[in-house]
Design a protein around this nucleic acid. Structure first.
Length: 440
RNA sequence: GGAGAGGUGCCAGAGUGGUCGAAUGGGACUCACUGCUAAUGAGUUGACCUGGGAAACUGGGUCCGAGGGUUCAAAUCCCUCCCUCUCCGCCA
């Protein structure tokens, strides 16, 4: 949730910044109006409640003084005030609910540093990286031989490591089934990444299904309910990313300043209905209802947040470099920013077979937007006041698309795939995926 | 799933209708004493909403697992739900 006090103080600024991401100023004005009405109602309710309380106190007093008649009279008065209170309180409750409903669906105020733009075409490429060219603001040479211009779904069938038809048989399209080296590759990548972060990130294995409140904390509900899988009977939701459970780890808690920054990492499956993109990218591993991902998440003080943002980004990039994959870093423009985010960098790997840049990581700084929803605070100093923490997270990394890029990038002329050497120790020494011998 | 016990402040723990935001102990913080640490003494110590104030501070309201109800009045009585513990059952 945005800082509603900040909104009261400077509505023009909030309107301006939210306008950059396409939020109508009338919506902000509506929240301002509801907020004012809510506060009036609360004052009226509290004043009346105060009188009821006072009257009740006098009832007790009257009884103590053995003034039964006076007590009866006060009880009658209190009853009358109570009836009045009920009406006023109902109004306050109604306004509070309407204010909260609107408050919850208003997206975060973007960072003034985020590039202004309408949509993904306006994202800014910060840099490219390739194993040949290193880091550069110039796009690398994307000149690949024909044998690398084969889509991973064909490679997957050829090498017998992907069986999307059987995945579809079991669960429907966009639920992949990996086998053999395909399956092992996910395990290897997961171990590789978790080990890479083990120096300073606490490894967590969170639950995969979470309560409604947990989804609300990160901003995935109520607005984006259509994108999530729900177990209706128990009102549990399948996590779309480990960000969801990790961000709620400290929900309703007050952390000590010396615990921050608090870094965590988790490998989990991620579930997405992809409701808005039916029919797009239905082939292969480009867009899936279920995929595995390693996530990094940090609780930080506002002062630490920027530095943590860079640290997460660096870690995600380091993995891609070690895997030898060509990638680029995008600074998302205000129009493409996720609803909860203040600023986001996306990492996209280049997959030569499908000739596309694939998003494999999204590194976001949420400010206190999620912390306010999740009520995660910290004590600024021992015995001092409390403030909301800042939350940040980033994938490091989402494996399905990384695997697509590895297969396409590593494909040799004979059809086998050479794997990134860093994975060899995690693959019982295997350095490549051979072409299966033809059956006789 | 069945039976029982229980959920109170940072922690432990008292409190069965009004004087309870809540005893007491511990912790933490501040001050004093001490060369330092420890010990001792005194004091302070919640979060949230809303109003006043530049601020220090201050008025009102809410919060004793959650939500409803009874009552002039609920931590305390009633109902529903959630969670924890013990035993039984089941199970990887």
């Amino acid at each position: 949730m945005i800082d509603i006090r900040g909104l009261r103080e400077d509505p023009a600024l909030v309107k301006e910044l939210l306008g950059r991401r396409g939020v109508e100023s009338s919506i902000v004005e509506e929240l301002t109006a509801l907020d004012a009405a809510y506060r009036d109602a609360v004052s009226a309710r509290d004043e009346l409640r105060s009188r009821v309380n006072e009257t009740s106190r006098r009832v007790a007093e009257a009884y103590r003084n053995k003034e039964a008649a006076e007590a009866e009279r006060l009880k009658e008065e209190s009853r009358r005030l109570g009836a009045e209170l009920e009406v006023v309180a109902a109004q306050a409750t109604d306004l509070e609910g309407r204010r909260k409903d609107l408050w919850l669906v208003i997206p975060n105020v973007p960072s003034p540093d985020a590039p202004v733009g309408a949509g993904e075409d306006d994202n800014v490429v910060v840099r490219y990286w390739s194993s040949d060219g290193g880091s550069s603001v110039e796009a690398p040479d994307l000149d690949y031989p024909a044998h690398k211009r084969v889509p991973h779904w064909d490679i997957g069938v050829e090498l017998e490591i992907l069986d999307l038809e059987r995945g579809a048989k079991l669960s429907g399209s966009m639920f992949p089934l990996y086998k053999g080296m395909g399956s092992r590759l996910i395990r290897a990548l997961t171990s590789f990444a978790l080990d890479a972060h083990a120096d300073s990130f606490l490894e967590i294995r969170p639950p995969t299904f979470v309560k409604r409140e947990t989804m609300i904390s990160t901003g995935h509900l109520p607005k984006f309910a259509d994108d999530a899988y729900q177990m209706e009977r128990d009102d549990l939701w399948a996590i779309p990313t480990a960000e969801v459970p990790l961000t709620s780890m400290a929900r309703d808690e007050i952390l000590e300043a010396d615990q921050l920054p608090l870094r965590m990492t988790a490998a989990t499956p991620c579930f997405r209905r992809e409701a808005g993109s039916a029919g797009r990218d239905t082939r292969g591993l480009l867009r899936l209802h279920e995929f595995d991902k390693v996530e990094l998440m940090v609780y930080a003080t506002p002062a630490q947040a920027q530095e943590m943002h860079i640290e997460i980004l660096s870690r995600a990039e380091a993995l891609l470099r070690q895997l030898g994959l060509t990638y680029r870093v995008l600074d998302l423009c205000t129009g493409d920013l996720g609803a909860s985010s203040r600023r986001t960098f996306d990492l996209e790997v280049y997959a030569p077979g499908v000739d596309r840049w694939l998003e494999v990581s999204s590194v976001s700084w949420f400010g206190d937007y999620q912390a306010r929803r999740a009520n995660v605070r910290y004590r600024t100093e021992p015995g001092g006041g409390v403030e909301f923490v800042h939350t940040l997270n980033g994938s490091a990394l989402a494996w399905a698309r990384v695997i697509a890029a590895i297969l396409e990038t590593g494909r040799e002329a004979d059809g086998s795939v050479t794997l990134p050497p860093v994975l060899t120790p995690y693959l019982r020494g295997a350095a490549r995926i051979p072409v299966p011998e033809a059956e006789i």
